[in-house]
Design a protein around this nucleic acid. Structure first.
Length: 578
DNA sequence: GCCGTTTTCGGCCCGACTGTTTTCAGTCG
C-alpha cells in the first residue's frame, strides 16, 4: 500500500465509523477526500511537509481533513480516529465485506451483541442471535451466513485486461437474447479503469422480465444475489455482474447514469439542479414549478441517447474515459473537450522484448509480428543487466553489441522500420548501468526502474530523464496492479524535466501495469511532456494490448500530438536523435 | 466536513432492491 493509499484508507475508516454512529454528511466528505487523495499522483507526504494549506489544495480536502492528514504523517495516528475506534472496536473492513452488511449494521450488531469480527458474526448467526435484534430477522441472518465465506476470501479487483474480455462475453450472450434491443457494457469497464470491481451490463428491451430471467439463467451464473423486475446481480466466476434493463427509449439516459463515475454523475446532476432540471436514469426532466417528486415528473427533455442527455444540460457528449470529475464537466460546458487520441492513431511500438532477454520470440519473429499487426515501425528493447534483473534475464553489454548487429541485419530485410534499442535499468541513484558507447550506438534507449520500488522516486527518475542518451522513461512508477503501488513521483517536476531534455514518458500498456496512470498522464501533458504508448510485448500476441495503453492515455486527456508514436518513423528518428 | 457564475451559511445525487417494516432504514451502485 502506498502512503497515499494508507492515508486514504484511514479517512475511509473515519467515514465508516461516523456513518455507524449515524452522523450525516460528514461520511461523504471523508470518502470524497479519501478518493481524491488515493488518486493523487504525487506523494501526499511531501504536501504534508509543506503544511495544511498544501494538502488543502486537493479537491474535497478542507481545513479539518488537511489537519488530520498532517497529524497522521507527523505522528502516525489521527487522534480523533483512535477515539472513534475505541468507541466502536470492530474489524470494519472485514465485516462490511459481507454482502448486505454496511457500517450501520456493524454498529447495531456491536451495540446489541458485541460483535467485532467475522468469526463472532458467524457464531452469532449460527446461534440464531441476530434475528432477535430489533430491525433484523431470519432472512437477514440467513443472508449473512450465505455471504460470510465469500467475504472471507480476500477479493482483489480484477484487472481490466481480464475483466474486459469476460464482460464482452456476457454482453454478447445477452445481445443474442430475442427480446434484447440494445446492449452495452457500463461502469468502470466502459471507462477503462485499470481495475474493475464488478461487471456492469445495460440492456434496452420492452420485455424486462424476460431479460432478467435470461440473465439469471446464464450458464456462467453461480449464485443470484438479487433479482427484481428491472435489475439483477449475480456472482459468476468470482466476479459480481450487475444487469440493468430499461425500455429502449430510455437507453441513453440509463447508459449515462450506469457508466458513472459516481463523482461525474454528482457533478452532472448538480449542473442540472442549477438549471431547474433533474437527471436520473430515465432522462433529463424540466421540473421548473413542478412539485411532484415522481421519477418521471416534469417535461421530458432527453433520454434516448447519451448525446441528447448531455446536450440538454448544455454540454458536449464526452468519451467515458473522461468521466472522472477531473474538469470534464466544465470543459464540456465550454465546448473545450480534448480531441482524444484514438486506437488507430498508433503507428508503432517502441518497447518490446525478444528471446535475447526474457521474450519468447526471436527479433525476426517480433518484427514479422509487428508488420502483420499493421505497425509502421518497432523497437526491440531487451533488458540490460543491472538492478532488478535477476536470473540472467538482463543482457550484458558485450552481447548487446551482438544483438545490435542482429537487429540491423533483420532491419535490412524488414518491410517496416526497425529501431535497435535497450531497456536499461535506472539504479536507485538515477544512474544507468550500460556503457555510454553502447547507448550512443543504439537507436533508442528506454530506461526503467526495476528494483527498490518504494518511496519517493522523483529525483531518481529526473536524473534518468536528464541523461543525454535516454529517450524514454519506461513504466515510470514501476507499479504492479494489485501487487505493489510503485514509486511516489512528482509527475509535474518529472514531466517538466523530461520536456526540457527531449525525453518521453511511457504509458506501459501491459494490463498488469498501465503505468503511467491516466491521472498522471494528464499532469504530464499539462506540464508539457510527450508520452509514448508501448506494450512491453514479450511476444507478437501482446501487440494488441496497445489498446489498454491508448485508453489509459485517453483517461489522461491525451490528444494525438501529445503522443510520440502517433508520428511517422522519420519523426521518431528526429525525436530520439541526440 | 466541504463548498459557492445567486450563498462564508445552508445545503449536500438519485433510485432499486431487500427485509422488516404498516411507512421505512440500510445497502448498493
Amino acid at each position: 500500500m502506498s502512503r497515499n493509499d494508507e492515508i486514504a484508507t484511514e479517512l475511509e475508516a473515519f467515514a465508516d465509523l461516523l456513518e455507524a454512529k449515524g452522523v450525516e454528511y460528514k461520511p461523504r466528505a471523508y470518502r470524497r477526500a479519501a478518493e481524491n487523495i488515493r488518486e493523487y499522483p504525487g506523494a501526499i507526504e511531501g504536501l504534508a511537509a509543506d503544511g495544511t494549506d498544501a494538502v488543502g489544495e486537493i479537491d474535497g480536502v478542507g481545513d479539518a481533513i488537511s489537519a488530520k492528514v498532517v497529524e497522521y504523517v507527523e505522528t502516525g495516528e489521527i487522534g480523533e480516529l483512535a477515539e472513534l475506534r475505541a468507541e466502536l472496536p470492530v474489524d470494519m473492513a472485514a465485516l462490511t465485506a459481507v454482502e448486505g452488511v454496511g457500517p450501520k449494521t456493524v454498529g447495531k450488531l456491536y451495540d446489541a451483541l458485541g460483535i467485532t469480527t467475522l468469526d463472532e458474526l458467524e457464531a452469532a448467526a449460527e446461534a440464531g442471535d441476530i434475528q432477535d435484534v430489533k430491525g433484523f430477522g431470519a432472512k437477514t441472518e440467513q443472508n449473512i451466513l450465505d455471504n460470510i465465506d465469500f467475504a472471507r476470501e480476500a477479493h482483489e479487483r480484477a484487472l481490466l485486461g481480464e475483466a474486459r474480455p469476460y464482460g464482452e462475453e456476457i454482453r454478447d450472450y445477452l445481445a443474442g437474447v430475442d427480446t434484447v434491443d440494445r446492449c452495452a457494457l457500463g461502469g468502470s469497464i466502459r471507462r477503462w479503469k485499470p481495475t474493475i470491481g464488478d461487471v456492469d451490463v445495460l440492456v434496452g428491451s420492452d420485455d424486462e422480465t424476460a431479460v432478467v430471467d435470461a440473465f439469471t439463467d446464464w450458464e456462467g451464473t453461480d449464485r443470484v444475489i438479487e433479482a427484481g423486475e428491472t435489475k439483477a446481480s449475480v456472482r459468476a466466476g468470482g466476479v459480481r455482474v450487475d444487469l440493468r434493463v430499461v425500455v429502449p427509449e430510455e437507453f441513453g439516459a440509463a447508459l449515462q447514469y450506469f457508466t458513472g463515475s459516481k463523482a461525474h454523475n454528482v457533478a452532472v446532476r448538480n449542473r442540472a439542479i442549477e438549471r431547474d432540471l433533474k437527471v436520473n436514469e430515465y432522462g433529463v426532466f424540466d421540473i421548473e414549478g413542478i412539485e411532484d417528486d415522481d421519477q418521471r415528473a416534469g417535461r421530458l427533455v432527453a433520454s434516448e441517447t447519451e448525446e441528447a442527455v448531455y446536450e440538454a444540460l448544455g454540454m458536449e457528449w464526452m468519451p467515458p474515459e473522461l468521466r472522472e470529475d477531473r474538469g470534464e464537466v466544465a470543459a464540456a460546458a465550454a465546448g473545450e473537450l480534448p480531441a482524444l487520441l484514438a486506437e488507430g492513431d498508433i503507428r508503432g511500438d517502441l518497447h518490446t522484448h525478444s528471446d535475447w532477454s526474457d521474450g519468447g520470440y526471436s527479433v525476426a519473429e517480433m518484427v514479422a509480428g509487428a508488420t502483420e499487426f499493421g505497425h509502421d515501425y518497432i523497437a526491440i528493447s531487451d533488458h540490460a543487466t543491472g538492478p532488478g534483473m535477476v536470473g540472467g534475464v538482463g543482457v550484458p553489454d558485450d552481447e548487446l553489441w551482438d544483438e545490435l548487429d542482429e537487429i540491423e541485419a533483420v532491419a535490412a530485410d524488414a518491410e517496416i522500420d526497425v529501431f535497435a534499442g535497450v531497456e536499461a535499468n535506472i539504479a536507485p541513484d538515477g544512474s544507468i548501468s550500460v556503457d555510454d558507447d553502447l547507448l550512443a550506438a543504439l537507436d533508442i534507449v528506454v530506461a526503467s526502474p526495476h528494483a527498490a520500488l518504494d518511496g519517493d522516486g522523483t529525483d531518481r527518475l529526473v536524473a534518468a530523464a536528464k541523461h543525454p542518451h535516454v529517450d524514454v522513461i519506461g513504466h515510470p512508477t514501476g507499479r504492479f496492479l494489485n501487487r505493489r503501488p510503485g514509486l511516489d513521483v512528482d509527475i509535474e517536476r518529472l514531466a517538466s524535466v523530461a520536456a526540457d531534455h527531449g525525453t518521453a514518458l511511457e504509458v506501459n500498456a501491459s494490463p498488469s501495469r498501465l503505468d503511467l496512470s491516466g491521472s498522471a498522464v494528464k499532469q504530464a501533458i499539462e506540464a508539457g511532456a510527450t508520452v509514448v504508448i508501448d506494450t512491453d510485448a514479450h511476444g507478437p500476441g501482446e501487440f494488441e494490448q496497445i489498446r489498454y495503453g491508448v485508453h489509459t492515455a485517453r483517461r489522461g486527456w491525451a490528444e494525438p500530438d501529445d503522443v510520440l508514436n502517433t508520428q511517422s518513423a522519420d519523426a521518431i528518428r528526429e525525436f530520439i536523435h541526440d
